[in-house]
């Protein structure tokens, strides 16, 4: 048996002439939180729905928890949890009724009360789903995703439309699940979300993975030159350097103390990301080019 939760090679899916997923390789370790990051229409949802067993792939190898997602079985389904992008179902049922009902589907479910508490809906237990706010509704979706004690949880753009506070609460919930040992594969178009939650990130654009790594190393970010800028009577000076500390100490000696308007900046994840997704289908040189920003 492999210790990979997800193992994908050369995944392809086309709709008519359009290749939604155009050859994706992906490995997610057990216990890890992995983010698929990309703009809308990049192929994130198509890719994740193939892995969830919703869509058939055109080509490629895929194993999810050691099982082919193209042939879903009940046992396999009981080991994964799915949080879909949008749903407005179960409108007339209360939070506790829905969660308790879904618990019956699984062989070894968590208790409905513990799940409702974990997602922070204890006070809304008796509230009908139709009366929940968008964020509460998403929390209920997560509750239904984790009620079966999944080994692997899929989250498809879980915080779209959240206000900042709700998003932070939601992140805490996801971190807690990861701490409990659940492997998480999430898609998002929020950089910050990937940076906050993921152990590893893959950037997807045009149906391909254009870069992969830890959030801090993505696209060669950690090795990239820093940009140092400061004020001089002739205007703001900017210099790109691999050794920003040396430059700053030289400047400090030159100025004999405080350097006016000093900033030292490395490419942010956003810089890296925009350069990655802003280009046509990825090649290695795209990632390399980031260092020269």
């Amino acid at each position: 048996m492999t210790d990979l939760a997800v193992d994908v090679l050369g995944l392809m899916k086309s709709y008519g002439e359009t290749a939604a997923v155009d050859g994706i390789d992906l490995q997610v370790q057990r216990g890890e939180c992995f983010a698929l990051l990309g703009p809308n229409g990049a192929g994130k949802t198509t890719a994740i729905e193939i892995l969830e067993g919703y869509r058939a792939r055109d080509a490629g190898e895929a194993l999810v928890l050691g099982h082919d997602p193209g042939r879903p079985t009940r046992t396999w389904r009981s080991r994964i949890g799915i949080v879909l992008q949008t749903a407005t179902d179960n409108a007339e049922l209360s939070v506790s009724e829905v969660v308790s009902h879904f618990a019956h589907y699984y062989p070894n479910p968590r208790t409905p009360e513990s799940v409702i508490e974990a997602v922070g809906l204890s006070e809304k237990r008796k509230t009908r789903t139709r009366n929940l706010s968008g964020g509460q509704r998403r929390r209920l979706d997560v509750a239904l995703g984790i009620i079966g004690r999944p080994e692997l949880l899929f989250l498809d753009e879980p915080t779209t439309g959240f206000d900042p506070e709700a998003r932070r609460d939601f992140w805490d919930l996801i971190r807690q699940l990861r701490t409990d040992g659940t492997t998480i594969l999430l898609t998002t178009h929020y950089l910050e979300e990937a940076e906050q939650l993921a152990d590893r990130v893959a950037v997807i654009a045009g149906g391909r993975i254009v870069a992969e790594g830890t959030p801090s190393s993505l696209g060669g970010r950690e090795d990239a030159d820093a940009v140092v800028s400061w004020w001089t009577p002739d205007g703001t000076q900017t210099r790109r350097t691999a050794e920003p500390t040396r430059l700053v100490s030289e400047l400090a000696a030159e100025y004999g103390g405080e350097i006016p308007e000093l900033t030292v900046r490395r490419p942010s994840l956003e810089d890296v990301y925009l350069s990655l997704v802003g280009r046509p289908a990825g090649t290695a040189s795209d990632a390399d080019a980031v260092g020269e920003l």
Binding site: Y54, T75, I82, A87, T88, D89
Partner: peptide, 11 residues
């Protein structure tokens, strides 16, 4: 409304 898709994803 997602009812069918959700239950399709469960065992």
């Amino acid at each position: 409304d997602g009812t069918l898709k959700r239950i399709q994803g469960t065992p």
